[in-house]
Design a protein around this nucleic acid. Sequence first.
DNA 1: TGTTATTAAATCGTACACGATTAAATCGTT
DNA 2: AACGATTTAATCGTGTACGATTTAATAACA
Lengths: 149, 149
Amino acid sequence: MSAKTEKTSSEPVEALRLDRQLCFALYGAANRVTRLYRPLLEALGLTYPQYLAMLVLWEASPRTVGALGEALDLESSTLTPLLKRLETQGLVARTRDPEDERRVVVTLTEAGAALRDKARAVPEQLFCKLNIQLDELGDLRERLKALAV
Amino acid sequence: MSAKTEKTSSEPVEALRLDRQLCFALYGAANRVTRLYRPLLEALGLTYPQYLAMLVLWEASPRTVGALGEALDLESSTLTPLLKRLETQGLVARTRDPEDERRVVVTLTEAGAALRDKARAVPEQLFCKLNIQLDELGDLRERLKALAV
DNA sequence: TGTTATTAAATCGTACACGATTAAATCGTT
DNA sequence: AACGATTTAATCGTGTACGATTTAATAACA
């Protein structure tokens, strides 16, 4: 019996391969999709995470940093610098909530709200770059949402 | 007719929502899976991308930086610093290929090869944290691989 | 044979992502 | 009212990601 097929090690090594396959696919897909967005978002002056934050704000504008973090599943250590950059670009305003000075309220500016028009074409442009049918989209989304708590 | 339901804008806005749904799911899933790996990999002294690089090397050890980048879908600008950290930890060696001095060959050290044993338990531990059946895994992997070129 | 073109990694600047810690404000309980 | 516990953002340090540029080596070809 060769060392390669030794019983005590062959199963976990096989598991390593499976592990690699799913996680590579997820890791790679996320990186590649970010790369596909880049040229589309360049016209808007946004990065992909900034675009996601704007999508959330376009749905409901005065939002606390905490609420944004909840929606985006990000920590304040990630959001704070990102929001400061959006503020520098004049897309959002950051103010302390007078009701509770711990909270920071993020509000779309006129320019931030107006950017929504420019972003209208993005989803379709991106969808054209993706290799997926419209009716499969919902299923994949649900699987991904359910994958990890 | 209110501005909100204006015909020229309602459809693209709906598209924005769909866009948000798929891309949020992918972006969030990738971040959450990385977070799930973290405590498991801490015992190995590896980050998640470092673990992925080691998985590739455990399958075939002398690999050029370019070949690793191909396998991981990463640029040298990402890989070079990552590999230097693995080198600092004594897990890999980086040497110029004598045949072609442009290439850098990455080779597992004894310690790097030995780390594979410690990593044996990781896939199963992670799988337990994921909310997916074993038989759905292959399908999801293929969908993700096909999603973006 | 000498250029010129191409290739492979490294370097640089910008922007995430996160855990740990810190700072400030509010809450709860006495 | 007082003071310890909790909540909310910000800050800090480490480690990705990537496009653009640079450097060095090899290939191509006039």
